[in-house]
Nucleic acid binder design. Structure first.
Lengths: 230, 230
DNA sequence: CGCACCGGGTTCCTATAGGATTTGTGACAT
DNA sequence: ATGTCACAAATCCTATAGGAACCCGGTGCG
């Protein structure tokens, strides 16, 4: 409750308007899977659901559209982006292979102590995360995984690359939810993350980039093997 | 134009709503330099200016915010993104160096005949563009330059990399307008574009990537030399 | 049976109004 | 002169209303 402390201090810090809350709510619903791919996202309906007027909903959706999470057709409304096809997935991985190793290389030389600490925490969380079959169970696993890559992107200290990664990151999350792949070979994946972390900690940019490349390639390999059909 | 045939057919295809027009108008004004960096973009004011209600303006601005062209502060409104600092420029070029060579490499093997033709046209336009001192004169030069890179990004046939590039592309345009650098060494720049084009035409991906890397590096070098202060 | 047509309901889209917040200005006290 | 306060204007933000477009049945006709 930032409002409370802000009110006490005398000047509100939160500065959030309704559209921001709606945006976050929609994002959460998208990531939660409560809104399935292809489903219509009615402006008026969402407004009723969230008990606000359509205006902030409209604004939030306009922002979301640019992330690729929802698509808009003029005079017809918004829909959750369709399910990833095999081609979409291949493109996404190709894009990751282009950007993430660069992030790792840059992050290696620019990493702060706090950043490294957060990374270690992320890998630790990955290890401790439950690996049950239900979605609720591996939710924390996915969260830690995403956080790991996000921190590296942030530590690259390049606003443009960070923006580029964040766009990808959202799609990656969305794919993990609806691509039909659960957690496969978690031990192997954790080892790969550890290898990236070690390279970053040792301060060798090229090794860090190479480890990241290897990791993403293996992720692709595992996912492709998992869902051979289409 | 699609409108004509659509009207003839009896059902409009364009399907553009007011917010789309406002979006395009704002984008054009931003690219034209009619809206200077740091300037406030008042919602109500824009609405009066364009003779529409604030609602579509609000929606258009919400979309624009995600491109980095304008920034929003809750309850205070939108402002045109501030002028590029030297650090911003360095980051932008670093990002270009990460993405554009990859685009060139991929485009090389996936290029269509039409794509190659458009590229040749772009380089030709670059050659024929006037190089006068005034902005209006080198506007077509900048347009052709941006088009060249945009086509390559599109020919990479990867929606995610294309999105990533487009975000960069907007910033590049904005920088060229307000970074204070005009066209320096146009002949040299054209030669670099030609080298990239030749490599793409010859179908050698690695050379294409290398030529693109070289081009971006030299662009950076020229711009840095031009604006040493800051 | 297939297909054009046509309401009714839903949803989108835009304008408008008014409350909430910020900004600018000027008087006043220190 | 400087800082503070109050007040007015501008701006943002949200809700609401109504016109326009779309979707979905049903009906009638070939």
């Amino acid at each position: 409750m930032p409002d409370a402390s802000a009110a006490r201090a005398g000047f509100p810090v939160s500065r959030q308007v309704l559209a921001d809350h709606v945006y976050e709510a929609l994002l959460e619903w998208l990531m939660d899977g409560r809104l399935e791919p292809g489903a219509a996202v009615s402006i008026d309906g969402m407004a009723r659901e969230l008990d606000v007027s359509p205006t902030p909903v409209r604004e939030a959706l306009a922002r979301l559209e640019h992330t690729g999470m929802v698509r808009r057709v003029a005079l017809k409304g918004y829909r959750v982006a369709p399910v990833f096809t095999r081609e979409d997935f291949a493109e996404l991985m190709e894009a990751r292979l282009s950007i993430e190793p660069v992030n790792a290389r840059l992050a290696c030389s620019r990493m702060t102590a706090e950043g490294l600490e957060s990374l270690k925490q992320a890998v630790e969380d990955l290890r401790n995360a439950p690996r049950g079959g239900s979605f609720a169970e591996y939710r924390s696993y996915l969260e830690a995984d995403e956080r790991f890559h996000q921190i590296i992107a942030a530590q690259a200290k390049n606003q443009f690359l960070l923006t580029a990664y964040n766009t990808l990151g959202g799609q990656i999350q969305r794919f993990r939810l609806f691509g039909g792949v659960g957690i496969t070979d978690a031990e192997q994946a954790i080892a790969e993350h550890q290898a990236v972390l070690d390279a970053l900690a040792s301060g060798d940019p090229e090794t860090a980039a190479a480890m990241m490349t290897e990791h993403v390639q293996k992720v692709r390999g595992r996912a492709m093997a998992d869902a051979p059909a289409e």
